[in-house]
Design a protein around this nucleic acid. Structure first.
Ligand code: FES
Ligand code: FES
Lengths: 144, 144
DNA sequence: TCAATAAAGGACAATTTTATCCTATATTAA
DNA sequence: TTAATATAGGATAAAATTGTCCTTTATTGA
């Protein structure tokens, strides 16, 4: 469904949001331990998210990755996926045709479109703050 | 969503079904032209489908790939996906956790499950004969 | 029988994705 | 000011996916 980069990125962002909500910055080490992802690879992914202003970072001791409370309310999973995997998951043909549209559809086009729209809506409608609040219920996991 | 192998395989199977419905066998060459896929690679994919008895083949002049009318009624897209990509698309965690279940869910588990079940149902409920009949409407494409 | 045709299958090559390593740069606190 | 900590980023490396090439085997029709 998503690339490994995107999976790690989503898990990392959720963890960062949790920590930010508690007033902590999350170091690369703490993130990759919390979400069980390779540290150096995770660093690259987080760099992309910082560059695209989805999250913030600061160097030095006491540094790490974090999000402003404001950002947490506005940041959707869709934005994260968009930066890491692009919009191909919504716009590509499920059968791999070079273009996907209603004019020249593959035999499964309309069925795929319905599912892809549902996925996109779900990601667009889920903000980080929503997940953080749910996660407080302590039922949900980010590793294994 | 699917691997390239699976995309080519699905397109090829739909074309083979079309041709079989017309009483023709489909040669590798005709298939890879019709669905715009690399011939040698497509051959490997079709071999897998033959080995798993989803489609039939015969060697020699006038040989090619084909399906019995019976098979066409029973063969679902889900069966094709299952052989080529396994069931990972339905059973894997959307965030990449090693196991996906209700007991130890990731924060998106229940939302993902709904979408994955819809996809699976769609593939299970779509038989090749259904697609062939729709394709007769001549609105749908298998290349570009 | 023989030549042509077509799938089967093994070996290998290219590309993309995933992942690591190492150095540079910035920041903090003692 | 210095030592320690932490992100940034370039250069590679490993692994998985995608794709090609070539030989073998089977079948058909002349
Ligand atoms: S053309 Fe295939 S999903 Fe749209
Ligand atoms: S545990 Fe993540 S989708 Fe089920």
């Amino acid at each position: 469904m998503f690339s490994k980069s995107c999976e790690y990125g989503l898990r990392a962002v959720i963890f960062i949001a949790q920590q930010s909500h508690l007033g902590h910055k999350a170091s690369l080490t703490s993130i990759s331990q919390a979400v069980d992802s390779p540290p150096a690879f995770t660093a690259k992914i987080l760099q992309q998210l910082v560059k695209n202003n989805l999250i913030d970072s600061s160097k030095g001791p006491k540094g790490g990755f974090f999000m402003a409370p404001e950002a947490m309310k506005n940041l959707t999973l869709e934005a994260v996926v968009s930066v890491l995997d692009g919009d191909s998951i919504y716009t590509n043909c499920g059968l791999g045709l070079k273009q996907c549209n209603d004019k020249k559809p593959c035999p499964l086009h309309f069925k795929f479109v319905a599912i892809k729209e549902e996925l996109q809506a779900m990601l667009q409608n889920t903000t980080l703050i929503m997940l953080v609040n749910e996660m407080n219920l302590d039922r949900f996991h980010l590793k294994r």
